[in-house]
Structure formats: C-alpha cells, structure tokens
C-alpha cells in the first residue's frame, strides 16, 4: 500500500481559528433578535398606549361599560370588548375542553396503534386549517345551521364563532393532553388494572389525576389561543361592542376591534388609531398571563414518576 503521508499532511493543515471564534458570536447575535422582538412588542404597545391615555382617561377605559370608538362623541370603556372575548372563550371552552380531553383519553388509553396512526394526522390537519377558513365555515355553514334550531339567532352572534373557536383549539388541547397522559408510566395503569379495576376507573382515578398538571397546562394554553383568535370572530361575531351577556347577539372582541380599525382607514394619529394599542396591550396582558399560568402549572405540579 502506498504511503499517503496522512500524518504529515494533517500536521501541515492550517486551521482557521477565525470561523470557530465568529460562529458563536454570529449565532448569539441572531438569538438576540428573539429578545429584541419581545422588546419591540412591549415598546410598541407601551409607548402608544401611553399616548392613548394622554388623550383618553385611563379611568374611563377601565370603568366605562361602553365602547364606541367611531362616534363623534366616543366612549372608551374596554369592558364590552373583554366581555365579547370572554363569551367566545367560554363557549369555545365548553366545546373544546371535554371533547379535547375525551379524544386524548381515547387516543392514549383505548385506541389501537393503527387507529392512532390514522386519527392523529387528521387532528394535525384540523390544527393546520387557517383561521380565516374556520371563519368562513362559521358564517356560511354553522350560523345558518344553528339558526334552523334557534330562530332568534342573529346573523352575527357569539354562539357560532364560539363553537368554531372551540373546534379550532380542540386539536391543540387533545394533542397536549395526550402527551401528558402517555407520559404516565404503564406500571401505574397495571397496578390499577391488576386489582380488577375497569379501564375507565383506571383512567379516571389513576391516569388522569397523575397527569393533571399536563392536562391543566393544555387547557390553559388552548384558552389563551382562543383569547387571541382573530379571524373567526372578525368574520362571524360582528362588530358591535356589546355589554349584554346574550350569546345570540352580535358582539365585538378585542381582536375583532383591532381588525375593524386596521382594515378600514383609521387615520394615523387619531384617538382611534392609538386605541388600537391600548386594546392590543390589554389583549397581550391577558394572553401573557394565561401563558405564564400554564408554565407555572407545569413547573409547580410536575409529576415525578
């Protein structure tokens, strides 16, 4: 065999130290962009919200029960927008929480491997459907469908988009819950089944309690997504800030207001323009709080198996 002088050639190879030194610096700089994004969001929201409260009383914003941004004598009480959001979230939760958890239990505890392999991608497809498509589905199909049972239901209402929002967050809740359930070790199930417990008793008394923090975090994250949901409510809920609790009437959510203002011509520098940021800020605080609660639940109640 020929002598390839590999040792010599390696010894003569000049290594560039430059790349080794620059790469971490470049990657670190890229990483900083994610921090800058947060700073950008906070800066934008805070500065413009402060502007807004320079023009409109913060007391009115927090205490008034009327939101009427486009009137010549506008009133700026955030309450109807928050109530609108909550109506949607509650209806969404009623749809998504039991079905999401139920589906997760079925997939994790009952379904065969084959069923799981078929159903999970379908749920992923459901999760990947754009919200504007869900919105169109709500207004063109769900609302007329519901009206055939509930004649007093308005064209724009809380019920239809609420249900559709629930369907939108269902895959997320189901998939996160299933992750939590399948991380419960099998030995715990065997312990229960081995005593003659039925599958349902095992699930409800052993598996679900063991995974409760994961399930809780999944629900909170799902609801946070529902709070921030924009297109479904913009399309199907209407644009009437409404402080009644009636779910058959048109309403407006925080996100719906932002879309209404930005899709029209809100002149830069007007009260309405700045109110965007005050509403955005409120929305941001709500979702951030939900996300933090979810993270706290995961940390606080992390199960040790």
């Amino acid at each position: 065999m020929v002598d390839l002088n590999i040792r010599e050639r390696i010894a003569n190879n000049q290594r560039s130290k430059l790349v080794e030194k620059t790469v971490p610096i470049v990657l670190f700089s890229i990483t900083i962009i994610s921090v800058l994004t947060t700073i950008g969001i906070l800066y934008t929201l805070i500065v413009e919200t402060v502007h807004f409260f320079g023009r409109v009383s913060i007391v009115e914003f927090l205490t008034s029960t009327k939101w009427n941004a486009f009137s010549s004598t506008p009133s700026w009480g955030i309450f109807p927008l928050i109530l609108g959001t909550l109506k949607i979230v509650v209806i969404g939760a009623i749809v998504a929480v039991p079905t999401g958890i139920g589906a997760a239990i079925y997939l994790s505890e009952y379904a065969s491997d084959r069923t799981r392999r078929i159903i999970k991608p379908i749920l992923e497809v459901l999760a990947g459907i754009p919200t504007v498509v869900y919105g169109a589905f709500a207004i063109t199909f769900v609302t007329p469908f519901l009206q055939s049972f509930i004649p007093p239901l308005n064209h724009f209402n809380a019920l239809s988009p609420g249900i559709v929002v629930g369907i939108m967050i269902l895959p997320m809740i189901a998939s996160l819950t299933e992750d939590a359930l399948s991380s419960v070790p099998n030995s715990m199930r065997e312990g229960s089944l081995g005593m003659g417990a039925t599958k349902f008793e095992t699930v409800s008394k052993v598996v679900l309690p063991a995974a409760i923090s994961g399930v809780g975090a999944a629900v909170v994250l799902g609801l946070s997504r529902a709070i921030g949901e924009t297109m479904i409510v913009s399309i199907a809920a209407g644009s009437t800030p409404n402080s009644s609790f009636n779910i058959l009437e048109s309403l407006q959510t925080m996100t719906g207001f932002i879309v209404q203002v930005t899709s029209g011509d809100a002149a830069f520098g007007t009260d309405v323009y700045y109110s965007l940021y005050a509403v955005g800020m409120t929305l941001f605080i709500f979702t951030l709080a939900m996300n933090m609660i979810s993270q706290w639940i995961t940390k606080r109640f992390r199960e040790e198996y």
């Binding site: 065999m1 020929v2 390839l4 590999i6 050639r9 390696i10 190879n13 000049q14 290594r15």
Partner: peptide, 22 residues
C-alpha cells in the same frame, strides 16, 4: 477525519478509506 483536517482530493480520500477499512 481526513476531510476535517483539510484533505479534500478524491484520490487520496479513496486510498485512505480503502487502507483504513483494510
């Protein structure tokens, strides 16, 4: 190994691979 130490020509690499595998 040879590649990360700067040896790039195909002929040498072929020979190194065969020699090492042998």
């Amino acid at each position: 190994g040879p590649r990360i130490h700067g040896i790039k020509d195909k002929k040498t690499l072929d020979q190194v691979v065969e020699k090492s595998l042998r």
